[in-house]
């Protein structure tokens, strides 16, 4: 009983680098923001994965847009982080090179939880894991209101890119 948790901890990886991007493709203008402040943990043995992304870490090209994103859309004072907690399955931990995997779990954005299935790819080598995924997020699913009278046109579905690099904990 004392050894069991030790084993699982030994297979636990923590992110050393991250890149989260969201991209909204709308007729008036494309909006892009990048965040390098996300953190994640991944257990290669069990497939358990979690990540946490500070909303204020998203960098926009236009500073006022960034302020509106935090103040009006994401309410980042109230909901400072977006999180995901789940399990990746369908991969072989002894295989080298990129291989597909599917994460099933709970996404929490803007204080709203939603069950999600995210397809991605992962690369497992000795002491190092990489994960990447591009998936759509429907803004309305997370009760993020897009005002009708707004001069930034935001797409109803935004594309989110997630890259994490992990090292053994």
């Amino acid at each position: 009983m004392a050894i069991l948790p030790y084993v699982s901890v030994a297979q636990q990886y923590k992110s050393t680098e991250s890149y989260i991007r969201f991209f909204s493709d709308a007729p008036l203008e494309d909006i892009e923001a990048v965040n390098e402040k996300g953190v994640s943990a991944f257990n290669v043995e069990t497939g358990e994965i979690a990540f946490s992304i500070p909303i204020k870490g998203f960098q926009f090209a236009k500073s006022l847009m960034q302020e509106h994103f935090n103040e009006n859309f994401m309410e980042s004072d109230k909901y400072p982080r977006a999180t995901f907690k789940g399990k990746i399955s369908g991969y072989d931990q002894n295989k080298s090179g990129w291989q597909p995997g599917t994460a099933n779990g709970t996404m929490n954005i803007h204080g709203v939880e939603k069950e999600l299935k995210i397809d991605g790819e992962l690369q497992i080598s000795d002491g190092n894991v990489k994960i990447k995924s591009v998936f759509p997020v429907t803004v309305a699913d997370y009760e993020i209101e897009i005002p009708k009278v707004v001069f930034y046109n935001i797409a109803e579905v935004v594309e989110v890119t997630i890259n994490f690099e992990y090292a053994k904990n």
Binding site: P5, A41, N43, E67, E71, T83
Partner: peptide, 26 residues
């Protein structure tokens, strides 16, 4: 100790993330 051993990854991450002191906007 035993709850720690359950290692909820998300809880662990949240604990590690220190609340940052950033300039207040708007």
């Amino acid at each position: 100790l035993s709850t720690m051993a359950q290692d909820d990854l998300l809880e662990m991450l949240e604990e590690e993330q220190e609340p940052e002191s950033t300039p207040v906007s708007a």
